[in-house]
Design a protein around this nucleic acid. Structure first.
Lengths: 277, 277
DNA sequence: TTTGCACGTAAAGATCTTGTGACCGAGCCT
DNA sequence: AGGCTCGGTCACAAGATCTTTACGTGCAAA
């Protein structure tokens, strides 16, 4: 297959598809010195695909900021009396960070103090790794509900730019006027390098299984191609794989254009203005 | 609620405190049957000035919605096997509600299950009232961090000025007379430059999940547009994305501009001052 | 080359979304 | 109690979009 993704053609960077997944993955740091605890915990975290950073000494708030964490787990015991101060600082400076205190036996007063200072949860050791992780997730979950608007970034392919935040695709700042469904299909295709079978496309866009003989995907691909061609005539984006499905890949079109492009330096101004008018 | 709404007629600053305070006060319901526990807890809650409602049987989700709670504390033991289901339902339908399970001895598996279903914290009885309250506050605090950026600065878009401190929008110092809901929706939309789906708007303004087929958002957008048009006739602010949702973006309208543009040759810098004056 | 499919294309009809006005109940003030 | 505002629902109409259907075209195997 044409592994040569044509991102270089556009002269734009293509945003990495896994951005979405990275957003949802848990990023956390654990400040603790108990080797057994750390080992058990790290094993479970790895299994969950967390990005996980063990710490043995308190990091400055600025360092924590640059790590872009979702959560911080810390054992107050290893910080001594300064722990309270550190906890307060972290909670104040990083209101969006989930902070879970996981430490040995404590008094009610201590736990109350920790929670009042801004900790989201207090787990007493010894504890089950699974439970601690659930507590972390609960704290992060609640936090995320707020700033979920962390959407995907815009991506460019060939001449078109796909903007998930606006549910629309553009060529030179001009909307292609895609309908919601058209956009979803384009978005799906553009996010995958491989050939997608019709059933796959249907299922992921419509949300349920495709009926046998349904031609809806074909019809939408046609409309998409039509609008893509209208806005970007000398490129082709959606390729048919006979008997299989469709594949997205920006490619330059016919020979005549190609020669003109060489002459005019990759642009055909008359064409653009003609279309724009 | 906002009883002093009509005072804004003058277009002058109005004291917003009552609404603010009501927002900050904790509104919670406790589903439990232990008299001793309830007594101790209610005493502490009263001292803190919480609006507090004891329950001895599970309330329907709809009933909980109308109570406008911040938090729900429940003892799973008194619900029996149906408790898990109830917990799940409540957490799903009211994503903005802090749910704290406070129940007797339990297994790790049970606690994990509860947290996974959406509970924000799990406190084991017997527990100190003070600690439980801290846990509740921690959960609510995290939830609020999202929608309570405290005092936000005023912002202007096109001809309108949005003043979160006054819970009102203005055109040339004149109030648009938005109701609370209307303002909240406008505020939310204006703070995000992407398309917001109805479900998102509903969930962030109403605080719980939107029922399928609910048209409330549409109706309020209509009322908003009406008032915006009344105060700023030749601008449009809220744009419909068919099949998706709404997006806020101040844009001039064509009607008056078109004629002026013809006269002034495509630019109408005076227009701003003319309209502003 | 012929034949059987798969696919491209187009348009009409069905379906879904949205705008809109009227209406009703709850809560609040007088 | 009565009038008011506000929040929320309903039904209808106008559009926009989607699905279905029909037929032409091109691919691939025999």
């Amino acid at each position: 297959m044409s592994t040569e993704r044509s991102e270089t053609l556009a002269g734009h960077a293509v945003s990495p598809p896994p951005a979405q997944r990275a957003q949802n993955r848990l990023r956390l740091a654990v400040l603790d010195r108990d080797p057994g605890f750390m080992q058990v915990l790290s094993k479970r975290l790895d299994a969950l695909g967390c990005e996980y950073r063990p710490l043995t000494a308190p990091l400055g708030v600025d360092a924590l900021v640059t790590m872009r964490l979702n959560a911080l787990v810390l054992d107050l015991a290893i910080l001594g009396p300064t722990g309270w101060n550190y906890l307060e600082q972290v909670c104040n400076r990083l209101p969006g960070l989930a902070v879970v205190v996981c430490t040995g036996p404590s008094s009610v007063a201590q736990r109350v103090r920790g929670l009042r200072l801004g900790a989201d949860a207090w787990v007493t050791k010894p504890c089950h790794a699974e439970e601690l992780i659930c507590v972390i997730e609960a704290a992060v979950r609640r936090h995320r509900r707020a700033e979920m608007p962390a959407l995907e970034a815009a991506a460019s392919f060939g001449q078109i730019t796909i903007r998930p935040d606006l549910y629309q695709a553009y060529v030179n700042e001009v909307s292609l006027e895609l309908t919601a469904r058209e956009f979803e299909i384009l978005h799906l295709l553009s996010g995958s390098d491989r050939v997608l079978r019709r059933e796959e496309i249907y299922e992921r866009v419509w949300g349920y299984a495709m009926a046998h003989g349904d031609r809806s995907v074909d019809v939408f691909v046609r409309k998409l191609r039509q609008k893509l061609r209208a806005g970007s005539p000398d490129w082709s984006y959606i390729h048919t794989h006979f008997g299989v499905g469709y594949r997205f890949a920006p490619e330059r079109e016919s020979s005549v254009e190609a020669e003109l492009d060489l002459i005019t330096g990759g642009q055909a101004p008359e064409l653009d203005s003609a279309l724009a008018g």
